[in-house]
Design a protein around this nucleic acid. Sequence first.
DNA 1: TGTGAATATGTCGGCTATGACATACGTTAG
DNA 2: CTAACGTATGTCATAGCCGACATATTCACA
Lengths: 106, 106
Amino acid sequence: MRSEKRKKLEAAGWRIGDASDFLELTPGEAEFVEIKLALARRLRELREEHEWTQAELARRVGSSQSRVAKMEAADPTVSVDLLLRSLLAAGADRHEVGRVVGARRR
Amino acid sequence: MRSEKRKKLEAAGWRIGDASDFLELTPGEAEFVEIKLALARRLRELREEHEWTQAELARRVGSSQSRVAKMEAADPTVSVDLLLRSLLAAGADRHEVGRVVGARRR
DNA sequence: TGTGAATATGTCGGCTATGACATACGTTAG
DNA sequence: CTAACGTATGTCATAGCCGACATATTCACA
């Protein structure tokens, strides 16, 4: 499996091979990336709990299978807005989203 | 003061006078708007606690005074991404953001 | 092995959120 | 009153996210 560090850097919009491999994120940037990762993980969990395909979730959200795949991968082109809307469409409520955002590593 | 109902509709991207005055939001849409409003409220609180002007916060976020004003007003053109980044730049951590997102009316 | 379903990845035109700027409004002090 | 400061509102060009689509990859099962 790919390293957590690498995953976070890619979620932050970086690509391996960039000179930025050695750059650090500010605390705020790091927190932002972790929040996105947590939302993405929970989205996949919820989808699987419902036994929906990505295409099925996409239909419910009004999006596409490829974008759902990118959401679950915390792709840098995916906004928190879309992750949030998708989580809510997948049945999460405010309280659960807050729990996901605030939780330390699962 | 403007009614809460109206504030939510405007945050959802609607304008008074629209025929959509009578439309309802789906539960997910309503939750989404409430989350945005909660984040916006907390951002203003944090800024005021620091005794920063909107311009000062804008400088720290890398944005502009007008956009900070729009954030705090939960303007429909501001993303949750930007609200999140701003909250983190204002000193909130993951846990606090989660608390804000998940909390019922303040 | 092959074959189909699910998921991942890459790309693209269109739309939207963005920072910047101008300017209006509100408040407080002189 | 006026001036200074903070905040609100409107507009604009551009960057970035969007759904959609094509295609590659992975997986399950026979």
